[in-house]
Design a binder for these strands. Structure first.
Lengths: 135, 135
DNA sequence: CTTGACCTTGTACCTGAGTACAGGGTTTAT
DNA sequence: ATAAACCCTGTACTCAGGTACAAGGTCAAG
């Protein structure tokens, strides 16, 4: 069994982050020692690593909580998990599309403006934002 | 000239959002009517649209402020604008790369797991969140 | 000249994902 | 037996990007 500080050290997150995860139901309520210290099972380290890896591919803590819940649900299926992943994927693809469009816009703007020491009022990039509010 | 409410309506954002943009230097300090009402130039609508478009692809308000701020800099040259655009372009490309990596990770996970009605304890997606050492 | 719709300012609140203390209790080492 | 090092709870704060009032001022219509 691990204290909160030990768990924090072993899992590589802040002690307060662990409290935060507890508050938000991502870690189950820990056992207590005589003196009132939290005692986490050593498997909690794995659980936190799970959380961190899922975050790294774009899942929110809420979604991660759902996935952790699925793990404890006997009638949950791979399809349920797959559906969550599919949503994340669609989200990521949408973002990539938007960024690609913005990139093209910037490239177009840049190819129109030769740059160099031309004064700013001749800049075709700023012209395209064409906005003459002062100061 | 537009009041704050008119600007809000025309640009499709909340009146309070306009105040927020003002406070944070994304809109220049508005003129005032006799009675103390803000008077925005009608070009402010365009400016807000630009802010919203840039936000939509992941630019922060700080980044947007820098972009918009160029036009208020008297000694700036086209080269300066171009350099900034180049930075934003690099930013966008980095973001696209990160998202593409996330996407690939998700695709890999999903192709390993057939989904369907397989029980959750056989799910290779969850397994992979639980088992890898890094990320 | 009053009503209602609009405007002003300041301040407080919201989400997400944490982080930072304060003020107190416990455990361990010397 | 006492100090250091840890732990507890509760609350408040961070950042971004807003949103929501309240208390009061202004403007136009009837």
């Amino acid at each position: 069994m691990l204290t909160r500080g030990e768990l924090a050290k072993l899992s590589g997150v802040n002690r307060e982050t662990i409290r935060y995860y507890e508050r938000n139901g991502l870690l189950s309520v820990p056992a207590r020692s005589e003196g009132g210290y939290c005692l986490f099972p050593s498997t909690a380290v794995k659980r936190i690593h799970f959380i961190k890896r899922a975050q790294a591919v774009g899942f929110s803590l809420d979604e991660i909580k759902t996935m952790l819940g699925l793990q404890d649900t006997d009638d949950a299926t791979c399809g349920d998990v797959r559906a969550l992943a599919q949503e994340r994927l669609a989200d990521i693809e949408r973002k990539i599309e938007m960024l690609t469009a913005m990139k093209q816009t910037l490239l177009d703007l840049m190819s129109d403006c030769p740059g160099g020491d031309r004064p700013i009022n001749e800049c075709t990039i700023l012209e395209s934002f064409s906005n003459h509010e002062s100061v």
